[in-house]
Design a protein around this nucleic acid. Structure first.
Lengths: 120, 120
DNA sequence: TGAACATATGAACAATTGTTCATATGAGAT
DNA sequence: ATCTCATATGAACAATTGTTCATATGTTCA
């Protein structure tokens, strides 16, 4: 075994073993982390918010956020790669929208959490 | 006005203006992003997952994840700062648990999203 | 009081990130 | 074809990140 750490004491060995056994796999953890990370930037949060209101092309999204087309396009790629947004080509334009309902749910849960923190 | 970008064409001016007006504030976007970012790391994902199973002290969490106490403690601070986890001192130990139900909801929605992507 | 233990934290480092600038691609219009 | 427009992408850079190592804090027990 490689992962044996002798460093720390274990207080509740039973629980540790049980949770260790049930632990999510490396790949799953990575994928979840990547997905959250993709939402972990103010620019991309604004993009998600804007797209939750309406399907938008890149140039209108740039105008909405007051950011360069390049910056927005780079960020869209990240969201695209993690399937957080989907897109449709229409002539010269490319229209983006949220990929599925989970995205908006996560967004809303996060808003609730943040608002609840404020109230305390 | 400072934020005038002349660079891009606007296709749907009405929508752009409407969404611009309804856009979330800078502070809110930052806070949301920070919260998502805090979840955007495999180590912290595993911590959240472990704590969703059971309240755990730092040393048991270290053992569960097979990581150093220091590394876990640093990550816990990030989760603590964003109120994603709460803690309780008990003798020499400090027990951590998820702060509220939104955290687990977000986690679960993300799992659903990731699983749905796999199926496609 | 002092020793042992659980946790937190500061400094340091490589690795990753978000933006800008310049340029490429690819579609529609002339 | 050529020109223009909408979008994508590569390179470069400062800024931020996660871990390790060393050390500090604070609690319990003798």
């Amino acid at each position: 075994m490689v992962n044996e750490l002798c460093e720390t004491t274990i207080i509740d060995k039973k629980s540790v073993e049980a949770i260790k056994k049930a632990m999510i796999e490396r790949g799953t953890a990575d994928r979840l982390a990547e997905t959250f990370k993709a939402l972990g930037d103010p620019t991309r949060i604004k993009i998600i918010y804007a797209l939750s209101k309406k399907r938008l092309c890149v140039c209108d999204l740039s105008a909405t956020l007051g950011m360069s087309q390049s910056a927005v396009s780079h960020q869209l790629r990240i969201l695209r790669n993690l399937k957080l947004v989907k897109f449709e080509k229409k002539g010269k334009s490319v229209y983006y929208s949220l990929d599925d309902d989970h995205i908006l749910s996560m967004f809303e849960k996060c808003v609730e959490h943040v608002n609840e923190q404020k109230e305390r």
